[in-house]
Design a protein around this nucleic acid. Structure first.
Lengths: 264, 264
DNA sequence: CCATCTTTGTGCACGCGTTCACAAAGACAT
DNA sequence: ATGTCTTTGTGAACGCGTGCACAAAGATGG
């Protein structure tokens, strides 16, 4: 999960739990696929399988939206597509600005899933004057001096930050000052924003590290039966630094008292 | 949060809760920054602020790793960097393959955060023969025919999927069959994998839709006091489809009994 | 050596989210 | 109309994650 709500302590908005909101797009995608295949109705079991969730969870999720199913039959696909779209606010158009048109920003600008569902790239913005005017994905890049003007004139409320980490906070501040109240952050930094502004982050590096953790655990369990003088990569490249004032004493680890992590 | 563990039902691995694991990279990043500024120790309060979390939560998180702090002083920065790195498995090298070198794949290949911490791009793979041999971010693209060979020879266990949604599942199947056990999926699809394989997904479209939901709610609360004949964008572009067999009867919504969602 | 002060580590309670299991509701056949 | 069968909607129980609040630990100064 490359995400994580930064702000707003899980207050359930209008009675819809945050966890449910996060799954609605998943359901919507599955339903859209069914709709394109002209499937008229779908059961909670089928739809849950398509979305990769438990069917009971799906039914409870839908129950927060209202009673949109028919017992003995299932859910009307078209009707549900509309209800979820409306609940997510996708029946209206959301202009979005992308700030930072490097490799990633360009990729985002060209992302097809953008325009498809209510989102419209209102502007691409970069601080590099050499980029100004250059078309990316068919849209000319504008200089960051124009940022405030664009946001106010176009009524942009969603901003995407794809800049280097170093400038992300100040870009964020400018976006917020200009009126943006929702930010999708791709820069590897913790953004601080005032109350009322939502931030979601997408962080490749964090995702990989979480995968590495589980991967290591898998590998560790396999080789646990084998000799402890492990076959590979068990020895760290660098020696662990000693804690301040420590003279190499033992530390209380979760495995009990072991010598301060110093394999061989 | 652009992520979401797909598999493995929140089983706490070796006593460390999943939620804690997801925060460790955050702490590590903050600690690395402190380390570069040669800060020797840090209190839970300071570190928590830098990572954007509650200090009690941080202390509890660290308590799962062991007792690495000194009461009255705080945590030794270097020591903690090492401990967390080790816990996350970053003291060893993880070769990674990226499949699908379009805009996004190229951006990922060029992402600096990759090499910095234990991850190494072992290969870039694309199905388009025209791409083969072309260097992207300094690495020549290889044809997907080579996929199995590369994974086995290099011992790759982590794969990144940046292909179109249509082929993501079959790419995934090939990766898994060749030995990959951790997958980071950027394609907007639900991947199904056998037990023992971890999948994390990063989905721009879902993140935007979640933001739109909250954005809509904010706008709704503002205009609630105003006239209901809303100023803008309140009228859906398409009429809501009627549910199967419905003759336009009322539906039980969460707001009570209202006429089936048909504004004006 | 003792007192004071800072900061960790954690017991406890609370709330959210998930899952089970079942009654109610409706479709459909006879 | 009545009975059967399918599938929804939800009450209830459980487990995880969070945050409070405090006791224990150790540093520091006299």
């Amino acid at each position: 999960m490359a995400t994580g709500r930064t702000h707003r302590p899980a207050t359930r908005s209008r009675g819809i739990p945050e966890a449910t909101v996060a799954r609605l797009p998943l359901y919507l995608r599955a339903l859209t696929a069914l709709s394109e295949r002209s499937v008229p109705t779908v059961s909670s079991e089928e739809l849950a399988a398509a979305a990769g969730v438990n069917s009971a969870k799906l039914r409870k999720d839908f129950s927060y939206l209202g009673s949109y199913g028919t017992r003995g039959v299932g859910y009307d696909v078209e009707y549900l597509v509309y209800q979820i779209s409306r609940e997510l606010g996708l029946t209206q158009d959301w202009p979005v600005v992308i700030v930072g048109i490097g490799n990633l920003g360009a990729a985002l600008a060209g992302y097809g899933g953008f325009a498809s569902r209510g989102f419209r790239v209102a502007a691409l913005i970069d601080a590099d004057p050499a980029m100004t005017g250059k078309p990316v994905a068919g849209i000319p890049v504008q200089h960051s001096d124009e940022l405030e003007k664009i946001i106010e004139e176009d009524g942009v409320s969603i901003g995407v930050i794809a800049t280097p980490a170093g400038v992300a906070q100040q870009v964020c501040d400018r976006l917020v000052a200009a009126g943006v109240t929702s930010i999708l952050n791709f820069a590897p930094t913790v953004l601080s924003v005032p109350d009322g502004v939502d931030v979601r982050k997408v962080d490749l590096s964090i995702e990989l590290q979480i995968l590495a953790f589980h991967e290591q655990r898998k590998a560790g369990e396999e080789s646990n039966a084998e000799a402890d003088a492990g076959a590979e990569a068990e020895t760290p490249a660098v020696a662990p630094p000693a804690p301040r004032g420590s003279t190499g004493a033992t530390r209380k680890g979760p495995d009990g008292d072991v010598p301060a992590v110093m394999p061989a």
